[in-house]
């Protein structure tokens, strides 16, 4: 178990390393960030000074090693645009994204899994067909478009919910969250629903597929022959057996939603990290890009780790070994 964790950690370090090289080379290939940012009235002298001040006149490998040396001392750098530490900047906005994603994943799960189970249990009923049709809409209609529709309906026409932004934040245990206030919930519900639609569609289809397959399996027939009620068969045997693919996809989706909720964040003006990273890319603010991507890599590693641990719980045949 311990060896397994060490192996995973080593993998993460390698991925972070490779990714930082890609970002450095990528930004270098596009050009000089100073040319994107500088005011048109600046003289050549001012420009040269700046390029030197930010070390952009040095060869790429030297810039990279300066960066690595700083990271080794725990310093990811300062944003060129905001002149504040990038870790502080990213973490000041991360809670908003986490909040949004957790609510959306929660919505996706409590609706998606029961709907999928039902659709798989009675695959030929009208209800099941309706659920399946809606699930197709869920992941084929573009998020921003549904987002705009929701805003038009609930914010502009009906005026029930605010059109965007994050609500009032309040202290909850040891951190501040908008989920502790009713105003916060009014703000989060629409973007979270919007963000959950894709995942919901996916969960419905996965659960249904697993369900249909399992219902024809031998162990279900035996259970039925034993005279167990369907409720018990579905919830204590089938659900556990179809959980592995669901958990895998769920984990991956959780990671990618945390990292790339940017469309929903933009449409609903949610102050999360997604908007920050897009702006940073536009301005070639390299320190922010690197810090953010490091965070994303870490996130994926952690989520994958948790998913693996859950596997082992769900399926006793799975054994965790070092380096695998």
């Amino acid at each position: 178990m311990f060896g397994y964790l060490i192996g995973r950690l080593a993998q993460a370090v390698v991925v972070v390393f490779v990714m930082s090289i890609i970002v450095f080379v990528g930004v270098y290939a596009i050009g000089n960030p100073i040319d994107v940012m500088i005011d048109p009235g600046a003289t050549a002298e001012i420009r040269e000074n700046l390029i030197r001040q930010y070390g952009l006149d040095q060869p790429l490998w030297q810039q990279y090693f300066t960066f690595i040396a700083n990271v080794a001392q725990g310093d990811l750098g300062r944003s060129m645009v905001y002149n504040t530490s990038v870790t502080g900047l990213v973490f000041s906005r991360f809670p908003a994204t986490v909040e949004l994603v957790l609510v959306s994943v929660f919505i996706a799960t409590i609706i998606g899994i029961p709907a999928g189970l039902w659709a798989g249990y009675r695959p030929n009923s009208i209800g099941a067909k309706l659920i399946m049709a809606l699930s197709v809409l869920g992941f084929s209609v573009p998020t921003f478009w549904i987002g705009m529709l929701l805003i038009m309906a609930f914010a502009v026409e009906l005026g029930w919910l605010p059109s965007g932004g994050r609500g009032e934040v309040a202290q909850f245990l040891w951190f501040k969250t908008s989920l502790a206030t009713s105003d916060g919930w009014a703000h989060v519900i629409m973007p979270a629903l919007n963000l959950s639609l894709f995942k919901m569609g996916l969960l419905i289809r996965l659960t249904r597929a697993g369900m249909v397959e399992a219902m024809g399996a031998e162990y279900v027939r035996f259970a039925r022959a034993q005279g167990l009620p369907d409720r018990q068969i579905v919830f204590s045997h089938v659900l556990r057996n179809i959980s592995i693919p669901v958990v895998t996809v769920f984990g991956l989706e959780l990671g990618s939603t945390l990292a790339f909720a940017v469309v929903t964040e933009t449409v609903f003006n949610w102050p999360g990290v997604g908007k920050l990273i897009i702006d940073s890319i536009m301005q070639l603010d390299r320190p922010v890009m690197v810090a953010y991507l490091v965070l994303v890599v870490m996130l994926f590693v952690i989520i994958n780790l948790v998913v693996d641990l859950i596997y082992a719980r769900l399926d006793p045949r799975v054994r965790l070994k070092g380096g695998s």
Partner: peptide, 18 residues
């Protein structure tokens, strides 16, 4: 002074009275 970079979101915020 609220920053709303997305054009459509800004228009929606006005129309919904935010």
């Amino acid at each position: 002074r609220r920053e709303i970079p997305d054009d459509a979101a800004r228009v929606a915020a006005l129309k919904s009275g935010q």
